[in-house]
């Protein structure tokens, strides 16, 4: 089966034409990508799509009320909404360094969420 994707690996946004197995839906091949990142994106996007999660959590004792956070690695796409929801109940105390772990194993993905800045 043929399907169209847009690569999100860089701002260029290549249009990818992806061939997948009619029966299993598993990735077979891709064209339209300008670089290798495009082909690995296409394979991941078809087999187990994933996205980075970025959000904010409450912070106390800093000059802002919100601390930006980011997942250390991309999360399975289906877990994203749950992961962002989990950020609502987190409050941290300043000071925080960029890279500090804010939440471990978010939404059962085994992936940590870290502070995106020092505050």
């Amino acid at each position: 089966m043929e399907s169209k994707l847009i690569c999100i690996s860089c701002p260029r946004g290549c249009e990818l034409l992806v061939q997948t197995d009619e029966r299993t839906g598993v990735f077979i091949s891709v064209e339209g990508n300008a670089c290798m990142r495009g082909s690995s994106f296409a394979e991941t996007e078809v087999n187990h799509p994933e996205r980075m999660m970025t959000s904010v959590v409450s912070i106390r004792g800093a000059k802002h009320c919100m601390l930006p956070v980011i997942s250390r690695r991309p999360l399975p796409k289906g877990k994203l909404v749950e992961a962002v929801r989990a950020m609502r109940s987190i409050t941290v105390e300043a000071p925080v360094k960029e890279g500090d772990v804010i939440a471990e194993d978010i939404a059962g993905t085994g992936i940590d969420v870290i502070a995106a800045r020092s505050l």
């Binding site: 980075m52 970025t54 959000s55 930006p68 980011i70 960029e98 995106a116 800045r117």
Partner: peptide, 25 residues
């Protein structure tokens, strides 16, 4: 950058997809 918490910054310079605050940091 501090309010651009989404990722996608720094690919040209750092070969990484950083969030805005990370790029600033």
């Amino acid at each position: 950058l501090q309010q651009c918490i989404h990722d996608g910054f720094g690919l040209v310079r750092f070969k990484k997809q950083l969030s805005g605050p990370q790029y600033a940091e």
